[in-house]
């Protein structure tokens, strides 16, 4: 028997599970992207508020500019994540389609082992292999992009916490500044928690 005939077809349920996991990751990323968009508006608000507070909130002003840069970086980062996740969904669906075709060709080859089915099955397997490799590479890229996003959000958390401290020195603006920086901190924390759970998805750990 050729290697093509002895192929394990047991990867079919795995591809199905992967597809479900990617769909869930996609949904989570979509909600994170939505939240990240809110951060942009908040950062703008913080800058205006700092301008109004003037010298009383100089430290906060510097931080709010940093937060604005952070929110833009975060948006770019989310764009990259979205692109990668779409690539993964596409590759997994191709792998699922490959598996269905390979299964049917495999049955044909078993029923008529002398026929061309064996050769065609072997050619199909090479293509399957390419799809599987592409998926593995995208999975790695996505994992790295998530790590980068996570690091970035940790930095954002530090910025938000520093802004909270600076807000206390805002004299008459202390209350609104504290409110803005507090909201910022909450949102960054929310994104951090989401990314944390995404990093731990079985899609990356392979269980």
């Amino acid at each position: 028997m050729t290697t093509a005939l002895t192929t394990r077809l047991s990867s079919a349920p795995q591809a199905g599970v992967d597809l479900l996991r990617i769909v869930r990751i996609n949904e989570e990323i979509k909600s994170v992207v939505g939240v990240a968009f809110k951060i942009n508006i908040m950062a703008l608000n913080a800058i205006f508020l700092a301008k109004r507070a003037g010298t009383a909130a100089r430290g906060f002003g510097v931080l709010s500019n940093e937060l604005r840069v952070f929110s833009q970086d975060l948006r770019d980062c989310m764009g990259a994540l979205t692109g990668l996740i779409h690539g993964c969904v596409n590759e997994v669906s191709l792998v699922l389609q490959d598996l269905r075709h390979t299964g049917l060709l495999h049955q044909a080859a078993v029923l008529s082992p002398q026929s061309k089915a064996v050769g065609v099955l072997a050619a199909r397997e090479i293509q399957n292999e390419q799809h599987t490799r592409r998926l593995a590479s995208l999975r790695k890229q996505l994992k790295r992009a998530l790590e980068d996003a996570f690091q970035m959000v940790e930095l954002g958390g530090v910025l938000a916490k520093s802004a909270k401290i600076e807000a206390a020195y805002g004299q008459s603006f202390a209350v609104p500044l504290a409110q803005v920086s507090g909201e910022f901190d909450n949102i960054v924390e929310e994104i951090r928690a989401s990314l944390e759970s995404l990093r731990r998805s079985a899609f990356f750990t392979g269980n």
Partner: peptide, 19 residues
């Protein structure tokens, strides 16, 4: 249909070269 492909293919290839 796709589901019956193996059965049709194997019967056909006993008579004729599918390529």
């Amino acid at each position: 249909g796709a589901e019956i492909f193996p059965a049709v293919f194997s019967a056909l290839s006993s008579e004729f070269d599918p390529s």
